[in-house]
Design a protein around this nucleic acid. Sequence first.
DNA 1: TATATTAATCGTAATATTGCAATAAACAAA
DNA 2: TTTGTTTATTGCAATATTACGATTAATATA
Lengths: 109, 109
Amino acid sequence: MGVTKTEIFSDTQNEIAQLAKAFAHPARVAILHQLFKSTTCICGDLVDEIGLAQATISQHLKELKNLGLIKGNIEGTSVCYCINEEKWENMKSIFNAFFNQEIKTNNCC
Amino acid sequence: MGVTKTEIFSDTQNEIAQLAKAFAHPARVAILHQLFKSTTCICGDLVDEIGLAQATISQHLKELKNLGLIKGNIEGTSVCYCINEEKWENMKSIFNAFFNQEIKTNNCC
DNA sequence: TATATTAATCGTAATATTGCAATAAACAAA
DNA sequence: TTTGTTTATTGCAATATTACGATTAATATA
């Protein structure tokens, strides 16, 4: 109960679900938007920009980092985060394959 | 606490998050895979194919239907589900815009 | 060394999601 | 009408996620 039955799904299905979770919360989408558009991507700036508590932003950053979609670089006392281009491209190709499946026409709808 | 603060994010950010939830569970990915590859897409077949309880599949179908990504057609006692092509294309363009943002090169990482 | 500054982690509270048995609803067929 | 077939809904129980205050850790600066 309440536990996702990972074992009954294919690796691809689990990977898509795992990656999709990165985008399944607006705060993480906002963080990624910010990392795309800004050349300075210090954690503290994200806190100011987005308006959630520092602990909350830090937690979201951790999830994105765990998925490999972003990487962080320590700069003195602050940490600069960036999109991990390689993983981002990899993620894109996984979703594109999923999104661009051919739809079989069938008679029911 | 524990409530997503929808109001502090942009419409686009919330829409992406909402749509991403469709793909954030392997059962829903599996259902969509099935709807793509099969010409018969009866709910009962999905239950057999995927191996979750009928109530659980029905619930996942409802979420996909609420997002508009699939549509159902009643055929006697059974219901045939299909990808909603129009909404699927719309969803694709939203994600493509998000995925294909230009990455600003910055000096920190 | 003492004091800021910045980010990660811990602990906790609250909400959300997942899964399923049981039941209801809708319809076909006998 | 009664019975079977199929799907939706209800009502839990359990796990997962979200949020944040407080604290810790690490480093820069006075």
